[in-house]
Nucleic acid binder design. Structure first.
Length: 552
RNA sequence: GCGCCUGUAGCUCAGUUGGAUAGAGCGUCGGCCUCCGGAGCCGAAGGUCACAGGUUCGAAUCCUGUCAGGCGCGCCA
């Protein structure tokens, strides 16, 4: 909960006592008895001013005009905390602010319109997306949403590695299946793709081309099949992403980087900066002067490029396109790649803040306590499509977003399929639906709920606890956006849902605590609070890309 | 061998950027509700924050070391 006036007053008081340019931090104490807000300012200043913290706290308090700051009491506690209890009227007023802000509550403008490119998923077009991609997709999209909520201009981007050897590998695998389908002896090559979908591709090709593809393939056939396979796989991945409620603004292909002359431009750029050198017939980039373990090859001795070079060119292009920041969501197996990319970015003179990598750890899927390893269609892994089909987009996104991305996670299918409040997704969605249903039962149009009503009928301590949680929302959004950590929003929503549900359930035991059927003034006040809670639940779910249902 | 990530309740995970008495869900146990079952409601038990030092008014959080797990260390992509 923010209280800028109080924070400023504390800073002024600190300056009066001889400590200027300090920032007064206010936080919600963990225990009720410690009031509504607390500051450790006196303890922070004690060392600097060489004074006793508790005395300092006393001096600070004396310099505050408590009444005008809506502070009812300010108490010194423990080693030197100052615990503030705010007037109930202040809290009630701020409920009204939430209802007024409505869909904008939680939004901020500190992003100052900066352009951020968020690149995620970026799967090879060689097969269906798997659960790991799903986690990256949920994370990348939620980060994008968080940045949008905090005043950034965001582009969601998917990098398609359509030029690598893996495509040829898939084409060879399809070739083998084609021959098998026509009754010939053929083996999927070593390290090839074995999933059922490869056979599907072969079958489709046969339907189109008949027997033409049964024999050996010349360059013509190779190219045709390659194009076909690329298009099919990309289309499928796009469909999966759409089903997962992720819309990319841009699919950038590796081949377009090759075709645009940016490789040469990148080489020239680095060369001009004197960071390239030749050794053993290869061209190296001196990444080790920018924090990398060792220098890296860009052009191999046979004249071909390493994977690294087009990747640098691609990221350089992000800067040329005008982005202030490029965030990449990468799987944990690529984390070792981060230092060299950061080094390359710095070598290009783009600074240390332009590029950011968010690492997402592995997902293990379990059913009945046992790991689920394979999907029928993909063979070696569980596909995202399997998860969506089985438990739905909302649940899948929520589960992926619930944990810190650096945390390896277990996806518990049994819990995910549970359609009760045991399942945290439903608990949060129920909380929202419940409030919508209160409006329906009361024949109330939520958009016409009067905010400017007398809120003094709100007196229950539980209600004020919930109000304080509602007031925390903008700070949670800010911290989540700054740290690229959507899971903070999830944890917050679960806490809010718990409070809301228990506020609501109190009415099933004691009718006088219900929203509807009270004195008109009481119902009106509680409706405004309900509205504020509904708004926060809805806005929070929107940040996660999860639906806020009218009813369950 | 080196680097990065992780280690918190039986399980899955949070922990307000160093704050006060470490939290939630699942599971377990008790009560309520229910024809039964499920769901739901109320409550309880459950902790050497991997371990050992250090930094300071204060450490799950920062530093050092150890242990355990994951990942990565190509002129592969």
């Amino acid at each position: 909960m923010r209280h800028p006036e109080l924070a400023r007053a504390l800073e002024t008081a600190a300056a009066d006592l001889g400590a200027d340019a300090v920032e007064a931090k206010l936080e919600r104490p963990a225990v009720l008895e410690h009031g509504d807000l607390a500051t450790n300012l006196a303890m922070v200043l004690a060392g600097r001013l060489n004074r006793k913290p508790r005395d300092l706290a006393q001096n600070l308090i004396e310099r505050l005009d408590l009444g005008s700051l809506d502070v009812e009491s300010a108490e010194i506690a423990g080693p030197g905390f100052i615990n503030f209890t705010l007037s109930r009227d202040y809290l009630r007023r701020r409920v009204r602010d939430i209802a007024d802000a409505n869909r904008d509550y939680g939004r901020a403008d500190w992003g100052e319109g900066k352009a951020v490119n968020v690149e995620f998923v970026s799967a090879n077009p060689t097969g269906p997306l798997h659960v790991g991609h799903g986690r990256g997709a949920a994370l990348g999209d939620a980060i994008a949403r968080l940045l949008e909520w905090t005043g950034h201009r965001v582009q969601r981007e998917f990098y398609v590695n359509d030029a690598g050897a893996q495509i040829e590998n898939l084409v060879e695998s399809v070739h083998a299946r084609c021959r098998q389908l026509s009754g010939q002896d053929a083996e999927v090559p070593e390290g090839g793709y074995h999933g059922e979908y490869v056979t599907e591709l072969a079958r489709e090709l046969q339907n189109v081309h008949g027997e033409r593809l049964d024999g050996p393939w010349g360059p013509e056939e190779q190219r045709e099949v390659r194009d076909f396979v690329l298009e099919r796989m990309q289309a499928e991945q796009r469909d999966d992403m759409r089903a997962f409620r992720v819309e990319f603004d841009e699919f950038r292909t590796e081949s377009s980087v090759y075709g645009s002359g940016q490789i040469d431009a990148t080489i020239a750029d680095l060369d001009q900066r004197g960071l390239l050198y030749e050794r053993e017939g290869a061209r190296w980039l001196g990444t080790s002067s920018f924090g990398d373990d060792k220098d890296r090859v860009l052009v191999k001795s046979d004249g071909s490029y390493t994977y690294f070079l087009p990747d640098i060119a691609y990221h350089r292009d992000k800067a040329l396109r005008g982005f202030n920041t490029a965030i990449d969501v990468w799987g944990a197996d690529h984390h070792g790649y981060v230092p060299r990319m950061k080094a390359a970015i710095e070598a290009l003179g783009l600074g240390t803040d332009f590029f950011e990598a968010v690492i997402v750890q592995l997902v293990r899927v379990e059913r009945g306590g046992e790991e689920v390893k394979f999907s029928k269609r993909a063979g070696e892994f569980v596909t995202l499509r399997d998860l969506i089909d089985e438990v739905g987009t909302d649940v899948t996104r929520y589960f992926f977003l619930e944990r810190g991305s650096q945390q390896q996670m277990v996806f518990d299918l049994d819990l995910a399929k549970e359609r009760s409040e045991k399942n945290p997704v439903y608990k949060v969605q129920y909380a929202h639906a419940r409030l919508r249903s209160v409006y329906r039962r009361g024949g109330i149009d939520p958009n016409k709920i009067e905010h400017d009503v007398d809120l003094t009928p709100i007196v229950e301590p539980a209600a004020f606890e919930m109000i304080k949680t509602l007031l925390d929302f903008p700070e949670v959004v800010e911290a989540a956006a700054q740290n690229r950590e959507p899971h903070r929003v999830v944890a917050y929503l679960e806490e809010l849902a718990n409070q809301l549900n228990s506020w609501y359930h109190a009415g099933t035991r004691d009718e006088s605590l219900r929203v509807l059927g009270q004195e008109p003034s009481v119902t009106a006040a509680r409706l405004t609070l309900a509205r504020a809670a509904e708004i926060v639940l809805r806005n929070g779910l929107e940040i996660l890309g999860i639906e806020a249902p009218e009813q369950m």
